[in-house]
Amino acid sequence: MGRITRRLALGIAGVAGFGVVAYGGTLVACRFVPRKHPSFFALLDAVPDDETARRVGKAMVASGHAPSDLRDLATLLSERPHIRAALVTDCPATRKRLVQTQCRADFAEGRMVSVEGWLLSQTEADLCAAAWLAGGRTG
């Protein structure tokens, strides 16, 4: 890639949002929210509902980097410590933060995948794949 075009830069912006660390107060607020142990699907709220995320999800499954069976993928994801923690919290902000923490841990530990040239954490790419599978493989 010679030049950074606006399109390229914005192209991954939604997915890169997994990396934003913008909480602070929300965590404190969430501490007092009663826990209802939400389903795996609540996790997928963290995935941006946009074209890029769908493209990443589709590419992950098509390339075999992510299993094409949603249950297998959910099992795989829930083996990761911060995702496991996210699965037992019902505060969306905390959940999002835990997903982000897992993504950062993935990078720190070298669990990365390259999708269309973008270097993503295994977790965010898997979540995009899960959202794509859960959404009926559309888009």
Partner: peptide, 28 residues
């Protein structure tokens, strides 16, 4: 660049686009 990308991701700063194809295009 992948290792720089890992550091950028681990710091929560953003994401890296790898501009070198595999196999590489020497024309760049």
């Amino acid at each position: 660049h992948e290792l720089i990308g890992a550091a950028v991701g681990a710091a929560g700063l953003g994401r890296v686009h790898i501009g070198i194809t595999d196999p590489p295009d020497l024309g760049i």
